[in-house]
């Protein structure tokens, strides 16, 4: 014991410069995938080699909504569903800031669905990371706009009867310039995708399929977090460039992952400043 005491080392977390270590332990349950998404994101922030003082992260409400609180950037934990709108204000007021919205499927696609499609349409330069666990987890397992048909949730005790949103298809058809989907098992590919998207100009969306071992898996008897990761291993298929129409996820069905969209469109602020300059020039 004596030797242990005397050799006590100052242990520094490798992600200390991008995570708020004074907030650890985090609130996520054992088996949850959000931590993996944050790990991938932290690594991407370092790999992207960008000025982190100029990156701002905005979250909404829910389990994933807590991410902003753990990442050491100018970070905002805002209202339910409105993270994209809040981030739009930041970007429009100061285009030098790289804005990241990190939130969940319920937050971004249900209550925040309108802001999501309009920011995509305008092509606001921001990266949206949507962690999709198929359920409202923080409130205890209610049905989400992503819950697959027939899956159970506390508010659909006879199985889900609403067809879910296909998030990449929604993003693609609304005008996003970069759309990818990975599961939390594809941690290295997810990290590469995030790094790439951090440099992408325009509305970029990365969907992260993540296990909810506490609610989604328990209600649907899918085992623990590890079992769900095994399921991803056996049932996900990488198909880069796949038409986003084909990316529906059925209950315990195949999950197609990859980078589906990577295109160029002028961003909102590019169009805005260009037009303003034209008008000003014409006046002179």
């Amino acid at each position: 014991m004596e030797t242990l005491e005397s050799t006590k080392l100052e242990v520094i977390h490798p992600m200390e410069d991008v995570l708020r270590m004074d907030r650890i332990p985090h609130i996520w349950c054992p088996g949850c995938g959000i931590g993996l998404a944050v790990t991938a994101f932290s690594a991407a922030l370092e790999k992207a080699n960008i000025d982190l003082n100029k990156v701002s992260i905005v979250s909404g409400i829910g389990c994933t909504g807590r991410v902003a609180g753990y990442v050491k950037l100018d970070s905002f934990h805002t209202t339910h569903g409105r993270a994209v709108a809040f981030a739009t204000g930041i970007k429009a007021a100061n285009p030098d800031i790289k804005v990241v919205v990190f939130s969940g499927d319920g937050d971004l696609i249900a209550i925040g669905g309108n802001h999501f499609i309009h920011a995509a349409r305008r092509n606001i330069d921001m990266l949206v990371i949507c962690v999709n666990n198929f359920i409202y987890a923080m409130t205890g397992g209610q049905v989400a706009p992503t819950t697959p048909l027939k899956a159970y949730a506390t508010t659909c005790p006879f199985g889900c009867v609403e067809p879910p949103f296909n998030i990449p298809y929604l993003a693609d058809s609304s005008g996003a310039v970069y759309v990818a989907r990975w599961t939390t098992l594809h941690i290295r590919r997810l990290c590469n995708s995030m790094t790439e998207a951090l440099h992408k100009k325009g509305f970029s969306v990365i969907e992260v399929i993540s296990p909810c071992a506490q609610y989604y898996s328990r209600i649907n008897r899918l085992g623990d977090g590890l079992d769900m990761m095994k399921f991803y291993h056996d049932n996900s298929e990488i198909r880069h460039g796949e038409d986003t129409k084909n990316l529906d996820i059925g209950f315990q069905g195949k999950i197609i992952v990859g980078k589906f969209v990577d295109r160029e469109r002028p961003t909102y602020m590019e169009r805005y400043t260009e037009r303003l300059a034209q008008i000003k020039g014409a006046k002179k």
Partner: peptide, 27 residues
Amino acid sequence: KEVDATFIQMEDEISALAAVLGASWTG
């Protein structure tokens, strides 16, 4: 255009005030 101010018409009043709050934090 004369004073370099920014205007954005949002999709509803909920997002309008959200954007204003975000903008205010940029100074």
